[in-house]
Computed example of a mutant assay.
Amino acid sequence: MKQGWIYILTNKRNGTLYIGVTSNLAHRIEQHRQGRVAGFTQRYGLKMLVWHQHFDNLHDARRREVQMKEWNRAWKIELIEAANPEWRDLSFELSN
């Protein structure tokens, strides 16, 4: 069974937020950082990883992503600030 991650990207503290899901977080974030993911994240320059959560099962991660995408902005910001109050770019802490 494939593992999964949910992640939140932004372009700056309290900036535009994007929630995504992947089975390989380090690789996916590198794709975003290099601008190789066309669409919303590329258009808004969303390259800062400010939050992520691991799941043993990719299906569970996808289900949680759908829930979180329906959250209001304040809940997403609360989630980020509980784990990462400085809004540090966590992508530099990932290992491939």
Rank of each mutant, 00 (worst) to 15 (best):
H52S: 14
W5A: 00
W87S: 02
P85C: 10
M1I: 10
R13D: 01
W51G: 00
E65T: 11
L90Y: 11
T41K: 00
W75M: 13
A26Q: 02
G45A: 05
H54N: 08
I77W: 12
L58S: 08
M68K: 07
F92R: 14
E78M: 11
G15L: 10
G45I: 04
K12N: 09
N96R: 15
R73V: 13
T16G: 03
W5S: 02
A83D: 13
R63C: 05
W51F: 14
W75D: 15
R88W: 08
I80A: 06
I19Q: 01
V66N: 10
E30S: 10
N72Q: 09
R36H: 09
F40M: 02
Q53V: 02
Y18A: 07
A83I: 04
K2H: 05
F40V: 04
L90D: 06
T16A: 11
L17I: 04
R28C: 05
E30Y: 03
N14I: 01
G4F: 03
G45L: 03
A82K: 15
M1P: 12
K12F: 02
D89L: 09
F55R: 06
Q42M: 04
E65Q: 11
D60H: 07
L25I: 14
S95Y: 10
R88P: 02
L94S: 12
N84C: 12
H54T: 02
A38K: 15
L49V: 00
E78C: 13
F40D: 01
V66M: 10
I19P: 01
Y44T: 00
P85R: 08
E30I: 00
A38W: 03
N72T: 05
T41E: 04
H59R: 09
I29Q: 11
V37T: 09
E78L: 13
I8A: 07
W5Y: 15
H59Q: 11
I77P: 01
F55Y: 15
R88D: 13
W75Y: 13
L90K: 15
R64E: 15
I19C: 01
L25G: 07
T16Q: 12
N14P: 00
K69N: 04
D89K: 11
T16C: 08
M48N: 04
K76Q: 12
T22M: 03
M1C: 11
E30M: 05
H59A: 09
K69Q: 14
A26T: 02
I80W: 03
T10C: 01
R43H: 12
E70S: 14
H27Q: 08
V37N: 05
D56G: 12
I29L: 11
I80D: 06
G15F: 05
W75V: 13
R88S: 12
H32G: 02
E70N: 15
N96A: 15
N84G: 09
A38L: 10
R64D: 09
V50N: 03
E93I: 04
K2P: 11
K2G: 00
E78K: 15
M68F: 12
I8M: 10
G45P: 02
H52R: 05
R43P: 00
W87Y: 07
L46P: 03
T16M: 06
E70F: 04
I6L: 13
K76H: 09
R62K: 15
R88N: 13
L25D: 07
R73I: 14
N24A: 10
G20H: 02
Y7R: 05
L49Y: 02
E65N: 10
M68R: 12
R13F: 00
Y7M: 06
D60R: 06
D60E: 10
